[in-house]
Each structure stands twice: as structure tokens, then as C-alpha cells.
Nucleic acid binder design. Sequence first.
DNA 1: TTCACGCTTGACGCTTACGTAAACGTAAAG
DNA 2: CTTTACGTTTACGTAAGCGTCAAGCGTGAA
Lengths: 134, 134
Amino acid sequence: MHNSRVPETWSIAELAAEYDVTLRTIRFYEDRGLLTPERRGTTRVYHPRDRIRLALILRGKRLGFSLDEIAKIVDMYDAEPGEEGQLVYLLDQITHRRQELEQRRRDIEETLQDLAEVESRCHADLNALRNHKA
Amino acid sequence: MHNSRVPETWSIAELAAEYDVTLRTIRFYEDRGLLTPERRGTTRVYHPRDRIRLALILRGKRLGFSLDEIAKIVDMYDAEPGEEGQLVYLLDQITHRRQELEQRRRDIEETLQDLAEVESRCHADLNALRNHKA
DNA sequence: TTCACGCTTGACGCTTACGTAAACGTAAAG
DNA sequence: CTTTACGTTTACGTAAGCGTCAAGCGTGAA
């Protein structure tokens, strides 16, 4: 049994495979300051922190946030405690993001309801067609 | 009292003001086939149908869909009953969109929870700071 | 040594979703 | 008649988010 505190690391290809993105994408995120892998020589070495951040980035993307917005959000997660002003700013940001997300959730609910209506209309039309044939 | 069946119409500027988008945006959506206003001479005249579609487009945008995806979704709403194959295709699309939306909803829930954690960490840090001062 | 493999850094290209003039038409108001 | 308001098209610009070469380096196996 090997030491469980051995900090696991990944290559860029491993991360890419795991999250189904291209190497180009991962390097691009680094370019934009979203990831900061270690370097061994020229080669990138990714630590758990990077892996988590990548997951957060991709979730942010699914939610339709821009990379700039994602950067702000992700940086909130591992922000240093810092001074009071910083903390207050952070709390403010959180409130803001929460409102955005809740708006999105409302949009989703509405859209799901609309889809349900269209769906039942479809079923009705299908039945009409089939009864007509019969 | 004037006839309630008078079909109400809007100018491009009215729609833009109502939904807080630019004229350019509305014309761009027309370019992409998402809106098809009537023309009186060269001037665009928007009917209730266009207004509804614009609202749907903007909701789709808030949800992070591309205009191409939005086009498909919006067209589902006022699709003609059509033939059976078409209806089946529609139902298939609905299932697909629903799954996407449900994934998004899950992402939102997770993010909201994460935000809640960051928030309480902030509050804790703030308290620590203030107790330290006192 | 030679080869392949995986990684690296440019650097150009492309699509999306508009912004931003430029230049013009039309119609009412002063 | 000129200004003002509102509309039009055409067209170039741009930021985001990568795709796609090209060319080179380092390492281990044959």
C-alpha cells in the first residue's frame, strides 16, 4: 500500500481525455489565466487543484458563462481570506451570481413547460393522423 | 371601444425598447431567419408572432443556446402538424432539449450549493477578522 | 542510431453575435 | 426649405473560443 498523501498529478492528455476536451482547449484556458499547471522542463503537470478548476470551468461553460465570468467565479473558490473589503466584495459577487443563476433556473422551468405543451400537441397530432388512417 | 381583434403591430424601435436590445440585434436575427417581419415599403412591421418569437429567442440566449439551436427550438413552437415523420422528429428533438435543460438545471443546483459554501466561508472569515480586531 | 510518441510553442483561420459607422430614403415639424 | 426623427442597406471591425497546421524537442524502445 503506497502513501495515500502522494499528490496525484496528470498530463495534459490525461486531463483532456477525462473531460473530453482537446489539448488546445486546455492550453487556451491556461493562456487566459484559468489554469496554472506546474512545469517540469517544458511539460505541463496538472495537480488536483487544476483538475478541480477545469471541472468548474466546464460547468461554467455549460451554464453559458463567458470565460471572463468563469474566471471571476472560479477565483472566488480558492480566494485567500484577505482583507475585509475583499471579503465584502466577494459576498457581493456571490449575491450577483446567485441572482443570475436563479433567473436561469426560472428560464429553464418555463422552457420545460413550453416543451411539455409542444410535446402533448405532437402526441395529439400523431393520434389524429393515426385515427384518420384507421 | 375599438375592435379588440385589431392585430397589434410594432416598429423595430418599439420592440427594441421593450426587450432592451439594439435595432442591429433584431435585424441580425432576421438575417439568421429567426424573425420574418412584414414589410411596408422597406420598413419592417412586427406582428404578435414576431414579438413572441423574439421573447423566446432572448430566453434561449439567457440559457446559453446558440442562435442555431434557438432557431430549431423556436421553430418547434409554431411547426405545422405535418406528416408523421416530422412529428416523430419533433418529439425526438424535444427529448433531446429536455435532457440538455435538465443537465443545466443540475449544474445550476451544484453551483448554487458551491456558492453557499463560499459564502459561509466568507462570513466565517469576516467574523474572525472582527473578533481579532475587538 | 533511428524511430515513434507525446509534448511543446507559434501562428493563422474560422464561426458567432453582434458593434459601429457610412450613406441614403421618407415624412412630419418648425 | 431645412431640420429632426426614424427607418433602410452595405460593409468592415471585433472578441470569444477554439481548430488546425507547422516545426521542433526529449525520451524510451528496437
